[in-house]
């Protein structure tokens, strides 16, 4: 089922793109990445919308948490009421991400399978190729005649990790940049647990993906970099990324601590954005 619905179509699509674009794997991967981003756009749009809405009701949420901290039941009830009034689904930010995971895993398997570099991998690939092609698709390149794909581009063997670590570094940088541009600065101060968690994720997530890309085929790293760049461009065009997010400042002016995601200094009561400093 997994192979029939996800892997086989993606493998054949990638190989067709490879044939259509002059046996160039990078271009084929670029086109496939754009196509996948377009397909999951409704999900990412919803995720972004949900994240923004959640951010907007953070002050009210904190108020409820403070006000009913000794009464968890009422706190939960009021929180749910707030969600309902604001039209926010608390899981709205996570579910689209989870739905995209099979696609990411499928794409990973597609890249590794299409770049078969060993006898066992090539035999495996033979089981995912459409043959013979239906008459209606006869104008497409015959995938069988294109195998094995040329996996050597620039200094890279796309079926193996990048030996000089350029791509893993780009993966870390673009993942971090995308997250930073998209995530509004937390309203919490240094003591706020959620803010600390958010800052931590902004660092650990890019490093984690960068670590994975050290060991996986560089073709997958190219997907990640391209996908991140497309994400940055898309969200910027949607008006959802900004320098304010990048530097963590109100006016988008440069701030090294904000850029590095360090806790912002506590601002005087009533003047700053954050309400966590306003102890009641």
């Amino acid at each position: 089922m997994w192979n029939t619905l996800i892997i086989d179509p993606l493998v054949n699509l990638l190989i067709w793109f490879y044939g259509l674009f002059g046996d160039n794997y990078i271009i084929a991967l670029l086109v496939l990445t754009v196509l996948i981003r377009l397909l999951v756009f409704p999900l990412t749009w919803r995720q972004q919308k949900s994240t923004t809405s959640m951010q907007e009701i953070q002050p009210q949420l904190k108020e409820i948490q403070e006000k009913y901290k000794s009464d968890p039941e009422t706190q939960q009830k009021k929180t749910m009421e707030l969600y309902r009034e604001a039209g926010v689904n608390p899981l709205g930010g996570c579910l689209p991400t989870l739905i995209q995971f099979p696609i990411l895993i499928g794409l990973y398997q597609t890249i590794t399978r299409s770049l078969a570099a060993s006898p066992l991998q090539l035999i495996e690939l033979s089981q995912h190729i459409y043959h013979p092609l239906p008459e209606a698709l006869a104008w497409l390149p015959n995938p069988s005649a294109l195998i094995p794909l040329n996996s050597h581009v620039w200094w890279l063997n796309l079926a193996a990790p990048d030996p000089i670590y350029v791509l893993p570094i780009l993966v870390v940088l673009t993942t971090w940049l995308q997250q930073k541009l998209m995530t509004p600065p937390s309203s919490g101060g240094a003591q706020d647990q959620a803010a600390a968690m958010s800052r931590s994720m902004q660092v650990t997530m890019p490093l984690f993906i960068g670590y994975i890309s050290l060991t996986l085929p560089s073709g997958l790293s190219i997907y990640w970099v391209v996908s991140n760049i497309i994400g940055i461009v898309t969200y910027t065009a949607m008006g959802r990324s900004s320098l304010k997010n990048l530097f963590g400042t109100e006016d988008g002016s440069f701030s090294l601590t904000g850029l590095l995601g360090l806790p912002q200094p506590e601002e005087p009561k009533g003047k700053g954005r954050g309400r966590s400093s306003a102890k009641k």
């Binding site: 939960q76 929180t79 749910m80 608390p90 899981l91 930010g93 996570c94 991400t97 989870l98 995971f101 990411l104 895993i105 959620a194 968690m197 994720m201 997530m205 984690f208």
Partner: peptide, 16 residues
């Protein structure tokens, strides 16, 4: 619910 928000990405990351 607030706690779940942080568990879900963690679990997803692990599965990935």
């Amino acid at each position: 619910i607030r706690t779940n928000r942080y568990w879900l990405p963690g679990i997803a990351l692990f599965v990935l």
